[in-house]
């Protein structure tokens, strides 16, 4: 059996699951996930600051793990679960992280925020109440030029607290 081969400039038929919605796409194989999300799916919530893996702005989740969409090829992501910032809110309700970011002023220009939110979401999914230094480490791959990170760390702590309280309340019910 020959390996699957896609010629240059030839478009590949790719099935992508983004925010739990399946998409059938016909895109050139060298288009990165960042480009496909923004230019083919209209999901411009994923931002970009360098396209070289040096700033973290374009972070999305693949199977719940933060990765850089500027360095990921859709052809390699078939069958994986991709989450972008547009997939964070549930229905009309903001995700607790989004809520906390809004309340505490953790977003200033808002441009790094999508990537920061997704990275933080992955952290809180893995650790319910991470200490501040752990949050620092987890967000060390997301540059922000506006906030000095202080309010971002505060907001992640607040969201973690609320999420864990919610989870405890849910378990008690």
């Amino acid at each position: 059996m020959n390996p699957q081969t896609v010629e240059p400039r030839m478009k590949a038929r790719i099935a992508l699951s983004v925010n739990d919605q399946p998409h059938e796409l016909l895109v050139p194989v060298h288009k990165t996930l960042l480009e496909v999300l923004r230019e083919d799916l209209g999901l411009t919530g994923t931002k970009h600051g360098c396209e070289l893996g040096e700033c973290g702005t374009c972070t999305v989740l693949v199977d719940g793990e933060p990765v850089l969409s500027c360095l990921a090829l859709p052809v390699e992501l078939e069958g994986r679960r991709i989450t972008t910032v547009e997939g964070l809110a549930e229905g009309g309700r903001l995700h607790p992280l989004q809520q906390a970011f809004a309340e505490l002023g953790a977003a200033q220009c808002g441009y790094c925020t999508p990537g920061v939110l997704l990275t933080a979401q992955a952290l809180l999914a893995a650790e319910a109440l991470p200490p501040r230094d752990r949050i620092r480490e987890a967000l060390a791959g997301n540059l922000c030029r506006c906030t000095g990170y202080t309010k971002i760390l505060d907001a992640v702590e607040l969201a973690a607290l609320r999420l864990s309280r919610g989870a405890r309340a849910g378990a008690g019910r």
Binding site: G49, C50, L52, E54, C55, I135, R136, E137, L139, A140, G141, N142, L143, R145, G148, Y149, T150, L153
Partner: peptide, 17 residues
């Protein structure tokens, strides 16, 4: 001329303010 080589502090270099 890049985000990697022009050094902008990350969470790890930014102390509590």
């Amino acid at each position: 001329p890049s985000m990697l080589d022009y050094k902008s502090p990350t969470t790890l270099e930014t102390p509590d303010i």
